[in-house]
């Protein structure tokens, strides 16, 4: 992933949980996440970027926490058995991610957050989300696991991640989810 280290705020180091102030991802930071940025954001949920089961407010998201996964040539599937993850906040999200995510939902008809999450790579404490996202995006393209959204040929994972964010933020009145 080129230029990944160009962010003002570095992505979490390998093998360590991100500091508390990274729970809220700034727009600029998201932009600089670059390829797979949305995906990294969602993967980050499994790495502790989202609050887990600590809040049941209006923006609480209940989703099964992925535990194992198998990847085929074109799709990935996840067996979900663990306790649900409760996502309480993403932070300030670039509205373009939401716009894209909404279109992904419209185009694919995939609007179940749990099912979308189940198709994304789970968190790995040994790799930072950005690196993991980039690898998954690259694999998606290599395996032709892509989705066409308004003509844009996107890696399935990055498109689904945007959809997750859009669905989660759909009730937001501003850009903060």
């Amino acid at each position: 992933m080129r230029n990944a280290d160009a962010s003002d705020t570095p992505a979490p180091a390998h093998g360590s949980a991100p500091p508390e102030d990274e729970h809220n991802i700034s727009r600029r930071q998201v932009l600089r996440l670059g390829s797979g940025g949305a995906l990294a954001l969602v993967i980050g949920a499994g790495a502790g970027w989202f609050d887990r089961a600590r809040d049941s407010g209006p923006k609480t998201l209940l989703a099964p926490a992925p535990t194992t996964s198998t990847t085929t040539s074109t799709t990935s599937s996840t067996t979900t058995t663990a306790a649900p993850v409760t996502v309480t906040g993403i932070g300030e999200v670039d509205p373009r991610i939401i716009t894209l995510g909404q279109r992904v939902v419209e185009v694919t008809g995939e609007d179940d957050i749990a099912e979308l999450l189940a198709q994304l790579p789970e968190a790995d404490q040994d790799r930072d989300p950005l690196e993991r996202a980039a690898a998954r995006v690259r694999t998606d393209f290599e395996m032709s696991d892509t989705i066409s959204v308004d003509g844009w040929i996107l890696a399935a994972s990055e498109a689904r991640a945007a959809a997750v964010i859009a669905l989660f933020c759909s009730e937001s009145v501003d850009s903060t989810c």
Binding site: G34, S35, G37, A38, D94, R96, I97, L100, L154
Partner: peptide, 9 residues
């Protein structure tokens, strides 16, 4: 999409 997805730098 471009700024978010394609622009990596």
């Amino acid at each position: 999409i471009s700024a978010m997805m394609a622009h990596t730098g």
